[in-house]
Write a protein that binds this DNA or RNA. Structure first.
Length: 317
DNA sequence: AGACACGTTTGT
DNA sequence: ACAAACGTGTCT
């Protein structure tokens, strides 16, 4: 798989006359990825400054990472897998580089290399960028439309209504431009791997982690935004207006979380029992069944005790 | 426990 | 009105 990834983008000698020696080590090779694949994203260095402070803040925290168990639990493949791996273009990063590498970025963006990728400078900040992960994270999924829409869609879905975001009312104007997508009042820092690999197979915990990350982010939003005041919880179907608000409307239908891997699938498999019995079964495709809805309505403990924003970010650094 | 069928809710 | 899909009861 690593070969696959790199062949597409990473190791391909640049048309402008040099070849990067790519070594498949996450983080270290990031500058190369950035340089070769996604070069300038809007005023990258400025963004990096902003997010580096984020990173430092959370990196210096001492609390243990709270979601490791959840990651492990969720890291099970949906498709057992005679699926052929997708090319790596279903991985998206909002790229964050290690500090040492940022220098390179700046040089590349502003310096000699800038011209080579000038056509990409207008890329929207939140646009999915095809950065090829050295690890095995290809999706063993047979659907890929999300490689185009998934990330953005998830981001949009997770946006908090203007009035409830911490930005001060109406501040939703151009969050993407200012620093990428937002997760309920806090900006999504670069370095967050927003994969739309619908689902990756065993060993690609990154994808699963992302799912959880989204979930956690949603949790954070949920807990930070007006608690179940009604409008917030219901306007956007994403953060399921369930459980925590369920005191009164316990019988209400729950909604798909919209961020788990099954939810991010767009197409029915057509072969599962639910698909085959659609007429009588009235059930969503098994591979699209929301992970949250699979649980018993009252069993979402981790939801109730949502982690704080700080811990959430600790995921990503 | 999973598959299935059906009633019901929800969104368009 | 209609389609999608959640909730639940029943069956295996």
């Amino acid at each position: 798989m690593a070969n696959m990834s790199s062949s597409v983008c990473m190791e391909t000698p640049h048309t402008h006359g040099h070849a990067h020696s790519y070594t498949p080590t996450t983080g270290r090779d990031f500058s190369l990825q950035m340089d070769s694949c996604m070069n300038p994203v809007l005023d990258y260095s400025a963004q990096m400054e902003r997010y580096r402070s984020f990173a430092n803040f959370y990196k210096n925290g001492t609390a243990p990472f709270p979601q490791a168990a959840k990651i492990a639990r969720l890291a099970t493949p949906i498709f057992p897998s005679p699926m052929t791996p997708w090319s790596c273009d279903n991985g998206m990063l909002w790229g964050r580089k290690p500090p040492a590498v940022n220098v390179n970025v700046n040089v590349n963006v502003n310096g000699a290399h800038a011209h080579a990728h000038a056509h990409r400078t207008a890329m929207p900040r939140a646009e999915p960028l095809n950065v090829h992960m050295p690890s095995k994270m290809s999706a063993d999924n047979f659907l890929s439309p999300l490689s185009q829409v998934g990330g953005a869609e998830c981001m949009n879905r997770l946006k908090v209504p203007p009035q409830s975001s911490g930005n001060g009312g109406g501040g939703s104007a151009s969050e993407a431009e200012r620093g990428g997508a937002t997760f309920g009042g806090f900006a999504l820092p670069p370095g967050v791997i927003v994969m739309t690999t619908l689902h990756s197979g065993a060993g690609s915990s990154v994808a699963t982690m992302t799912d959880s990350a989204f979930q956690i982010a949603a949790d954070c939003q949920h807990s930070s935004s007006a608690s179940c005041s009604g409008s917030n919880a219901s306007t956007n179907a994403t953060v399921s207006a369930n459980s925590s608000c369920s005191s009164g409307a316990a019988k209400r239908k729950r909604k798909r979380c919209g961020v788990c891997a099954p939810c991010r699938r767009l197409i029915n498999c057509g072969v599962c029992s639910s698909c085959r019995n659609r007429k009588t079964g009235h059930q969503i495709c098994k591979f699209r069944k929301c992970e949250e809805l699979k649980k018993k309505p009252g069993s979402t403990v981790e939801r109730a005790s949502s982690v704080g924003a700080a811990d959430t970010f600790r995921w990503f650094f």
